[in-house]
């Protein structure tokens, strides 16, 4: 990954409806995959693709606009962890089954291990590092500490990002509903009852999330 000075055009914030955006992204990837001559040669020669053929993207991470040149094979998770040093987002399974890698993409909770980095052109990404307001913790971060909503702490960033969405989506009105809508985030230490209490506490406390 390199930061590059010559920016690429941003599609702007007026996101098209999902299907149209998906098609655009898919076409973009198809283009990336097949257009460069070296790629075609690689296919013919049955030799590995040269990853030097990097792709330029621009996206916003925790409020900071980043212009990056990236390996098209990078997942958003690996981009964050391995290239940008944002290791708060965790890799638990790399299969979209544990939720440890949960981030917000344009406000939606998303599994960053199942999202290619090149698909994030123009998107706004929020990670756990972007949750607090400077040194002031987010109410859910405070509540997780108060209710001991973790032990080893590894699933915690993903739990927190999901918890924010769980409340914002309006799915935190009862313990049972929280349990249902948080079930994509695994915790092997078994902090579930404490996490549920923390979320319910923040929801009923009425602090803005």
């Amino acid at each position: 990954m390199d930061e590059f000075p010559d920016g690429v055009s941003r599609p702007g914030d007026d996101h098209q409806e999902d299907r149209r955006f998906f098609l655009k992204q898919s076409l973009a990837i198809a283009g990336l995959t097949f257009a460069p001559v070296s790629f075609l040669q690689a296919a013919e020669l049955d030799t590995p693709i040269d990853p030097a053929d990097k792709v330029k993207i621009a996206l916003t991470i925790n409020g900071t606009q980043r212009r990056l040149s990236i390996d098209p094979r990078s997942t958003l998770l690996d981009l964050l962890r391995e290239q940008l040093g944002l290791t708060g987002t965790k890799k638990g399974c790399d299969f979209g089954q544990c939720g440890a890698c949960t981030v917000h993409i344009d406000g939606q909770r998303t599994l960053s291990c199942l999202s290619f980095a090149v698909m994030q052109q123009g998107r706004k990404i929020t990670t756990v590092e972007g949750l607090s307001n400077g040194t002031q913790l987010h109410p859910l971060q405070e509540a997780f500490i108060k209710h001991d909503g973790f032990q080893c702490g590894y699933c915690t960033p993903g739990q927190l990002m999901s918890a924010v969405s769980c409340i914002r989506e309006g799915h935190a009105s009862s313990e049972a509903e929280i349990q249902e809508y948080m079930s994509g985030n695994l915790c092997r230490c078994g902090a579930y009852p404490n996490i549920v209490k923390a979320i319910l506490d923040v929801k009923t406390g009425g602090d803005p999330v």
Partner: peptide
């Protein structure tokens, strides 16, 4: 007592084994 490392864990700044940004790191 609340966990002494609670703040590090909820802010994603607790550093686990794969998360040390060493120079010249190979994979």
């Amino acid at each position: 007592l609340d966990r002494v490392d609670g703040r590090l864990k909820v802010t994603g700044t607790a550093t686990y084994s794969a998360e040390y940004p060493l120079e010249n790191l190979a994979h």
